[in-house]
């Protein structure tokens, strides 16, 4: 029971990370598509401004919880995915620094360099997280010693690539919706247009991904055994429909929340389909990392649960407050603000 609770929390932390940092990544991915002027770019940086750093901590927490609750899985997963994780890390480093450094030197070259870092530092993680999680859903070639017999190219299979494309599209939609909340005039209009167009692509990709999921993975086994669980699929489906509805009604913050729910739903659909596996082996199901062979001791899980039950709601509460407090449209005055990005 305790292990299952932690399994779900583990999934929720990753899903929460994608739903939050996802829009920061989306802003970066969309920048070449939407920003025509320096002002446009700055609006996009400042749309993520007060939030991206706090959002990124969800990744650190999700990683830390994998380490603490399922140490053996953490060990196998992170060492198996060595190269993609290091690439991800390098990309995240440049992304993070771009926010802080971009406006510190008044030179076109300097700004263009950090723009490049922000765009690639958003696109690469989006793609890699998608590829990584699709491969985790499907399983990687873990042998009896729980060593990955594949390499980076093994991960770039059709299903992995589909996961990568799906994540890029989801984050792009998510980012353009947040930009619609935070911007005005032309930029807002362009953000809404992009969101509408990407929405169609997301729809196609979600359907394709589900079809590929049937072909490539065993995720549906859990759902076949317990059809009630299919309710989970309602979250991304309803989320996606509501994105369109709210876009039509021009209530962009609701559309943004619905796209966040879509991301959470897609992630949780995969996570619940994997249960009780955390990292399936594609060689032999018995070689998989599961909650049974990798969970921490009961005492550790109990203490961690106490910490999580107190602090996670607190984190969600103050991060919600921050989003509310800074949900206003970015004005010229905001851009003149000395501390602005």
């Amino acid at each position: 029971m305790l292990e299952t609770t932690w399994f779900l929390l583990w999934g929720i932390l990753w899903a929460g990370y994608f739903a939050l940092d996802g829009y920061d990544f989306g802003l970066g991915i969309n920048m070449p598509l939407l920003a025509e002027s320096e002002t446009d770019k700055r609006v996009m940086y400042n749309a993520a401004g007060p939030f991206w750093d706090g959002n990124q901590v969800w990744l650190i927490t999700a990683g830390g919880v994998t380490f603490a609750a399922f140490p053996a899985t953490y060990a196998v997963m992170f060492s198996s995915l060595y190269t993609p994780l290091l690439l991800l890390l390098f990309a995240l480093i440049f992304r993070g620094v771009s926010f802080e450094f971009r406006r510190k030197v008044d030179s076109d070259f300097w700004r263009r360099f950090w723009d490049g870092c922000n765009v690639l530092g958003s696109l690469i993680p989006a793609l890699l997280f998608g590829v990584a999680f699709a491969n985790i859903f499907m399983g990687i070639p873990l042998n009896a010693q729980q060593i990955n017999e594949g390499n980076l190219l093994t991960l770039l299979n059709p299903y992995g690539l589909a996961g990568g494309v799906l994540f890029v599209l989801l984050f792009s939609m998510h980012g353009s919706l947040w930009l619609a909340v935070k911007s005005m005039g032309d930029l807002e209009r362009k953000a809404v247009n992009l969101a509408n167009r990407v929405w169609g692509a997301v729809l196609v990709m979600v359907v394709a991904f589900l079809a590929l999921t049937v072909m490539y993975t065993n995720l549906f086994d859990n759902y076949a055994a317990n059809p009630l669980l299919l309710i989970i699929l309602l979250i991304p489906v309803a989320g996606l429909v509501l994105v369109k509805v709210f876009l039509h009604q021009r209530v962009y913050w609701k559309a943004w929340a619905a796209s966040g729910a879509t991301i959470i739903g897609v992630t949780m659909f995969g996570v619940i389909g994997m249960y009780p596996k955390l990292l399936p082996s594609s060689i032999d199901p018995d070689f998989s990392m599961t909650i049974a062979n990798s969970a921490s001791s009961t005492l550790t899980l109990q203490i961690m649960l106490g910490v999580a039950l107190v602090f996670c709601p607190l984190v969600i509460a103050y991060q919600s407050w921050v989003h509310l407090k800074f949900s206003h449209k970015i004005t010229d005055e905001d851009l003149e603000y000395e501390e602005a990005y």
């Binding site: 901590v57 650190i60 830390g64 380490f67 603490a68 609750a69 953490y74 921490s296 961690m304 984190v315």
Partner: peptide, 14 residues
């Protein structure tokens, strides 16, 4: 991980 990992996770959360 049972000991050390939990301290890192608590650091991030708290």
């Amino acid at each position: 991980g049972d000991v050390f990992g939990s301290l890192l996770a608590i650091e991030a959360t708290m």
